[in-house]
Simulated assay, not measured.
Amino acid sequence: MADQLKLPAEKRTEFGKGAARRIRRADKVPAVLYGHGTPPLHLSLPGHEAMLALRHSNAVLTLDVEGETHMALAKDVQRDPIKRFIEHVDLVVVRAGEKVTVEVGVHLEGEAAPETLVTTDHSVLEVEAPITSIPEWLMVSVEGLEAGTQVLAGEVELPEGVTLVTDPEALVVNVSQQLSAEAVEAELAEAEAEAGIEQEESDDEAAEGGSGETEGEDAEAKDE
């Protein structure tokens, strides 16, 4: 289920890239809280606590904003692409008892039948869930599944109170026959031939070809 953690938050009056950099240098995270018809509230969150609370998607936070309590859903967490620290957080005001539409990741467990290949077509599914009962992930078992088996979104087991928003016919998991190395090479050669791509002669093939020509030339010389 979704993380829930109480965090202190401070209102901020400075905006822009320079202000955001100063906030991050102070080990805090710039954030904005909006929704339910309330004006946007610009905040700064404690850096370490926010990082822990936002480890998982769809985190639900209870914010203490200078004595006022707000329940919020982490809608968008922007991270530095290299260092992975949190650059900014968009928070949506939520109310106890309401349902929200969120994307939840799909996790696979088990091992399919031997010599099969398991691929995931939908790594996340959109669901509607009570704000206090958002699943952390949706588990799909592939244990013993044979080649040709497909798992559709409508077949994924959902926790009680959670309903599927994604098209039930959407393909989630596909189990196919694993190709041998020889079959892969044959398919690649066929595709290259159709595309008009000529393979360069390997050193070994060149050596064998050259050896054959030399032997033939030697034989002709002897006949002369």
Rank of each mutant, 00 (worst) to 15 (best):
M1E: 11
D3T: 15
P8G: 06
P8K: 13
K17F: 04
R21C: 05
I23S: 02
R24E: 09
K28W: 07
A31E: 07
A31G: 02
V32W: 01
H36W: 05
G37C: 11
T38C: 03
P39T: 14
H42C: 07
L45N: 05
P46N: 08
G47W: 05
E49S: 14
A50D: 01
L52E: 10
L52S: 08
A53W: 10
L54I: 00
R55Y: 04
H56E: 15
H56Q: 15
S57D: 14
N58W: 13
A59Y: 00
T69R: 15
T69V: 14
M71S: 05
A72N: 03
K75T: 06
V77C: 01
D80T: 08
D80Q: 06
R84Y: 08
R84W: 04
I86Q: 05
H88I: 04
L91S: 05
V93H: 14
R95N: 04
A96Q: 13
E98V: 03
K99V: 10
V102Q: 06
E103Y: 11
H107I: 15
H107R: 14
G110E: 07
G110C: 10
P114S: 08
V118C: 11
T120F: 07
D121P: 00
L125W: 02
L125E: 04
E126R: 15
E126S: 15
V127Y: 02
A129S: 12
A129Q: 03
I131G: 08
S133T: 09
S133M: 10
I134D: 06
P135T: 02
W137F: 12
L138M: 09
V140E: 10
V140Q: 06
V142M: 07
E143G: 03
L145S: 00
A147H: 04
G148K: 11
T149C: 08
Q150F: 08
Q150W: 01
A153V: 01
E157F: 06
L158T: 01
L158N: 05
E160W: 07
G161D: 04
V165E: 11
V165Q: 12
T166H: 08
T166W: 11
D167P: 10
D167S: 10
P168S: 09
E169K: 14
V173S: 05
N174M: 12
Q178H: 08
Q178I: 04
S180G: 13
L188R: 13
L188W: 01
A189K: 13
E190G: 00
E194M: 11
A195N: 07
Q199T: 13
E200Y: 00
E201Y: 09
A207H: 06
G209W: 00
G209N: 13
G216H: 07
D218M: 11
D218P: 01
A219D: 13
A221F: 02
K222M: 11
E224P: 00
